[in-house]
């Protein structure tokens, strides 16, 4: 059985990926419109306050999903959820840097066995180093009984 405390001590809070992004205004507006958004600052690219919507921030993927030396846990991996913290408006067209670390590792046991949750946190910064937003990706792995 995977030792969760060991994984936490070795991997939490260590940056393992740094990726650059530029959000396209039209793509963000499409994402917002197809989600049913009605506010101008999310769907009208000519709005002076136009900003990237939360789902497109959540879609930004780091170059690596896990640290390079993270052990293979086996089992079935699923997308367990996403979170977005909006600190400042993210304007499309600007250069963004996403710095990613493992924010949390925990397990839950149920009738069908143990599930391991890996929470990858990406902090998004602009070119001046200002922290604009944070996204969390929750990966769920159903542990194999023999692990």
């Amino acid at each position: 059985m995977t030792d969760i405390d060991d994984l936490r001590s070795k991997f939490l809070d260590l940056e393992f990926d740094r990726t650059g992004f530029v959000i396209d205004a039209e793509q963000s507006a499409t994402v917002a419109k197809t989600s049913g958004e009605t506010r101008s600052e999310f769907i009208d690219t000519t709005d002076p306050n136009f900003e990237a919507c939360a789902p497109i921030l959540a879609s930004l993927a780091s170059g690596r999903r896990l640290p390079i030396d993270f052990p293979k846990l086996g089992g079935i991996s699923m997308d367990g959820g996403k979170a977005v913290a909006c600190i400042k408006p993210v304007r499309p067209g600007i250069k963004l840097t996403g710095k990613t670390h493992l924010h949390d590792i925990y397990a839950k046991s149920g009738r069908s066995g143990r599930m391991i949750f890996l929470v990858s946190r990406m902090q998004l910064y602009d070119d001046s180093g200002e922290h604009l937003a944070t996204t969390d990706s929750r990966q769920v792995i159903r542990e194999r009984p023999d692990k």
Partner: peptide, 15 residues
């Protein structure tokens, strides 16, 4: 898509 569900929720909150 899962994050489209997030979009449904944010759209409702904004309305």
């Amino acid at each position: 898509p899962g994050i489209m569900g997030m979009g449904f929720l944010t759209s409702m909150i904004h309305r």
